[in-house]
Amino acid sequence: MISNLNLETQGQPEAAPASAPLSKPSTKNSLAPAPFPKVALIIERHGRKPARLVPILQEVQEEYRYLPPDILSYVARSLNIAPARVFGVATFYAHFAIKPKGKHLVRLCDGTACHVKDSVPILDAIRFRLGVTEAQPTTRDLLFTVETVACLGACGLAPVLVVDDQVYGAMTPEKALAVLESVREQERKEPSP
């Protein structure tokens, strides 16, 4: 039973009725259990409110490392909003990825402070070494994804490189490549899950 499609922003939408789409009768998914129990849980936790779309997608991405289309569809159905709107939100915010990301997230700060301290040659060197581009930021082996980020707030250490959660300050192209090499070496020795 799909009802109450919330497309307008006027007035705070109420939570969809508890009996909403998951238990939809007479459709092909009717007898199947919730296809993505973890996502279902996240949506429940946010009270099935369409207004919570952004935090829901954040938590879903935490779970899957990106936002696969079938999950986005599922989120849309569960919140009773149009899938096109969910897709629109997922592609609007830089934090969301609709393509799988690599195991290690390499983020180079390109805030003003880092930029004037020559972050671009570092980025070029990293991309060249890993064979990635702005359009294709992930290595074929899905080991690295290279992104730029507009300021990490560590301008005192410019230029700054962040690999996963580790911050490296005062980078040069050589130092940055050495950092990546050490990550790769670590993977060779004992691959992380």
Binding site: G111, T112, A113, C151, G153, C155
Partner: peptide, 11 residues
């Protein structure tokens, strides 16, 4: 605080 090169609010 999205301005690249600012981190006052964060602090």
């Amino acid at each position: 605080e999205g301005d690249p090169g600012a981190f006052m609010n964060r602090s």
